[in-house]
Design a protein around this nucleic acid. Sequence first.
DNA 1: GTCTATATAATGATAGAC
DNA 2: GTCTATCATTATATAGAC
Lengths: 219, 219
Amino acid sequence: MTQTPERLTKGERTRRRILHTALEIFAERGYAGVSLREVASRAGITHAGLLHYFTGKDDLLLTMMIERDRAEIEAIRSYVAAGTGPSSVEQIIVRWMIRDIARNQSRPDIAPLFVKLSTEATESGHPAYDYFRGRYIRLRETLARGFAYEFAAAEPPVEGRDPGLCAQQFIALADGLQVQWLLDPESTDMVASLLDYLGILGIDAEGWADIAVPEDRSA
Amino acid sequence: MTQTPERLTKGERTRRRILHTALEIFAERGYAGVSLREVASRAGITHAGLLHYFTGKDDLLLTMMIERDRAEIEAIRSYVAAGTGPSSVEQIIVRWMIRDIARNQSRPDIAPLFVKLSTEATESGHPAYDYFRGRYIRLRETLARGFAYEFAAAEPPVEGRDPGLCAQQFIALADGLQVQWLLDPESTDMVASLLDYLGILGIDAEGWADIAVPEDRSA
DNA sequence: GTCTATATAATGATAGAC
DNA sequence: GTCTATCATTATATAGAC
């Protein structure tokens, strides 16, 4: 389905290396505070070389975000397709997010990026404003269906809670915990906090952080 | 206790105007993405004029944050002192935060600033890293005592919940909701969401957004 | 595919006039 | 108390060599 790295052209490999590096640096220091020269340098080329692949800084940012989203969505789909039980996205999305945050807590990757960029992008006119707006809306919808499923599947079933509101709260909680965790990792257990929230709702999420999921194969 | 604006020296008035303007612009577009020239220009002076009052950009940021904190703490203290009932900070801090967010939702002010800057400052080495780290720790402690009070005061009293964990969740929720609200104000009711969370915990927070509190008198 | 060289603009900061 | 003038640095972006 996808080519193995060895069979990629040199250009394609460079392009991916740039995207990977950009993700790393933007995750560390946001968008406005990072220069193309630095991204390029850490990717082993000059900034002029980088601009051979992307028309500019905005293009790099948005390409990176969209590419990353695509990979995430594909990972979820393939997990569902190969799943041992769950046969739709809403049946695994809440667990997926828990597992995702658990993984990020032990090996930070994309989460700090999203939190930093999403706040930075809240100013209308920011190159990623539309992207993030749409992303949050879609995520909230998907997660709302996930909560509706979990409420029905819970033992006993959860009554009287609005899945949309819970989706909103869950996302907010995850984002906000990320900030506290980045500032003070020792005193912030994101997974425990999220599982506790699910517990308050009446969802027994014991062990959700440990569900087996195929790892990302991207560099 | 404080001098009236008319009696301030010209320099002091300018200094305050700069701080006020900086807060506005940093709240809009973060720290890294804003230039001193822009702050100065919107404050009606040149950037060299601004640097007469602050040693540099970092100094402006930190002075602004600390000054703002001081005003907030004083406001809480004076509310408690003049209070009709509650006689300590922990008895009103949860309600205060709800009211504060309600006010910010109708007239955005300082909240977008804190969310944007706090994420930006999560990188160690950022000029405001230490400040935000300390601020979150203090806020969490204060709020934990607040939750302990509310749990005991609830009807019926709330048992078996960790006030510290709730404080962490409440702050995370407030921060995260702010992001969603900034991106999509129509579909995000921060106050309703927070009151719902308190409701899940067993705290009846009906009307907490409307408690009367003396307004800030600062420009 | 990546480089050097360069154009152009903006930044944080300083010195010193007024 | 605020300005103009200027500096050194860095930025994004382009043109064209190799």
